[in-house]
């Protein structure tokens, strides 16, 4: 597959995703924040984690207003599968391609740890095909928030992608990842769990050919 990987000022998991996709045998191209791109030129688009714009104002807010995101919106309209990881998830919520918002963790601290997750919905583009997985999280603002009506819609549409077994950050309904159409976002880092020496390999199964 041909995968477009976004880079903003302050993105710091860009090479991590590049290595990850390469390890799985995919072609990668960088998508620079200042440039627009042909929305149908890629099989998948990934927005990696990091601290775009230093997380200033709100995490993801400044990145979501850059030229490259206009193309991401068009890609979503063209049903290109788009994935946001961590900061990428925050950006997708900020621009409205995913419902909800990500707020500061309940304990007001950054949390880095391995967590057990339950994948609760199947997804045609991004999936594990197994029910329980273990991945690391590393975020300061990962508390998923959505109002009651939004949560109900999400549940009705099968938009809850995965939940924490032991909620680390105060997310509504233990939500760790959501999907909407071809767009998906998750807080855990699958790219940090692809070799035994990393401590686990559950991250490998995320990219699935459809």
């Amino acid at each position: 597959m041909k995968i477009g990987i976004l880079r903003f000022l302050g993105t710091n998991c860009d090479y991590d995703i590049w290595e990850y996709a390469k390890a799985l045998g995919h072609d990668c191209e960088w998508l620079w924040y200042k440039d627009q791109f042909n929305p149908t030129a890629y099989d998948r688009i990934i927005i990696p984690g990091g601290f775009s714009y230093g997380d200033y104002l709100r995490s993801g807010a400044l990145a979501s207003r850059t030229p490259v995101m206009a193309s991401v919106k068009q890609a979503a309209q063209n049903n290109i599968p788009i994935l946001g990881i961590c900061n990428g998830f925050q950006i997708l919520c900020e621009i409205g391609l995913l419902p909800g918002a990500l707020l500061a963790n309940n304990n007001r601290r950054f949390i880095d740890k391995w967590v057990d997750l339950e994948v609760v919905s199947e997804n045609n583009y991004w999936s594990w095909g197994q029910q329980n997985i273990r991945l690391p999280i590393a975020h300061g603002e990962g508390r998923y928030f959505i109002d009651e009506q939004g949560l109900k819609n999400l549940e009705d549409q099968g938009g809850i992608w995965m939940r924490y077994n032991d909620n680390p950050n105060g997310s509504v309904a233990d939500i760790a990842g959501v999907t909407q159409g071809t767009v998906a976002g998750l807080m855990p880092h699958p790219e940090s769990a692809i070799y035994e020496w990393m401590g686990g390999t559950d991250g490998l199964k995320l990219l699935r050919e459809s």
Binding site: D16, E19, I194
Partner: peptide, 16 residues
């Protein structure tokens, strides 16, 4: 203490 530090970014960490 160390749970507040990102120990894995860069995907090179084998022991945290």
């Amino acid at each position: 203490i160390y749970q507040q530090y990102d120990q894995r970014v860069g995907v090179r960490t084998a022991k945290d």
